[in-house]
Structure formats: C-alpha cells, structure tokens
C-alpha cells in the first residue's frame, strides 16, 4: 500500500490525494523561483562570473525540478521504488554526460591546432 496520509483516500482511493493548499503552494514557489532565476541571470548586481552563475541557475532549476517531482508527481507519497528508479536513471545520465565531457575536453587541443593550421 502506498503511504497514504489522507484518511479519506485510504478507503477507496488507489493513491494519495494532494491537498489544494499544497498544489497552490508548490505552484507559487515555482513561479517565484522562475522570477529569481531570471533576476540572478540578468541583473548586473548578481554577476558572479560565468561559472558561479551557471551553478546558481542549475541549483534553482534543480530545486524547481525537485518540487515538481516530489509534489506534482507525488513521488514523496508514492511507492519509494518509483523514486529510487527515477533517481537511478539520473545517475546513468550523469555517467553518460560526464564521461563524454571528460573525453572530449581532453582532445580539444587536437581540434584547435587543426583549425589553426587550416586557417593559415
């Protein structure tokens, strides 16, 4: 059985019912975070350099994504196995992206010198 906290749903429901307050709260948070990410990316006073700003943008996006996953997608209330496999899939994405980035970064000089040679 799914971990149902909603007494009413326990009787005949198949899964957890999200409360209206929660839905609106998450929606509000998502909108606010969208505004925040735009401001940090465009306002001069938040310019901390390319790298820092990328991290900030990604952290905000990840917070937003987590809100969507945990509440809109019910992962917090759903069977934990679904959460597990979803997180697991992100590991594989990480593996794919990081290995590809690691390797391509290594051989960039070989591309760069060819480009320079051709430009001459």
């Amino acid at each position: 059985m799914s971990t149902t906290t909603h007494g009413h749903a326990q009787d005949h429901g198949l899964s957890h019912v999200m409360s209206a307050k929660m839905l609106l709260g998450v929606w509000g948070a998502l909108i606010v975070l969208t505004v925040v990410t735009v401001i940090t990316a465009t306002q001069p006073m938040f310019n901390f350099g390319a790298y820092a700003n990328l991290v900030i943008a990604m952290v905000i996006a990840t917070v937003k994504a987590s809100l969507v996953c945990l509440f809109f997608m019910h992962l917090l209330y759903d069977r934990k196995f679904n959460l597990l496999i979803f997180m697991g899939s992100l590991l594989f994405v990480l593996l794919f992206v990081s290995f590809s980035m690691m390797d391509t970064a290594q051989y960039q000089p070989a591309i760069q010198s060819r480009v320079e040679a051709q430009a001459q």
Binding site: F92, L95, F99, M102, D103, Q106, Y107, A110
Partner: peptide, 18 residues
Amino acid sequence: GFLVWGHHLFTSGQSALA
C-alpha cells in the same frame, strides 16, 4: 555494461585517460 563503452574507441582518437 554501462561503464565500458569506451573500449570500442581505443583507436578512435579518444583520449588516453578515457
């Protein structure tokens, strides 16, 4: 099986580290 795909690329111009 997911961690070894680069062994098809030993001569491809893949970096030595990879």
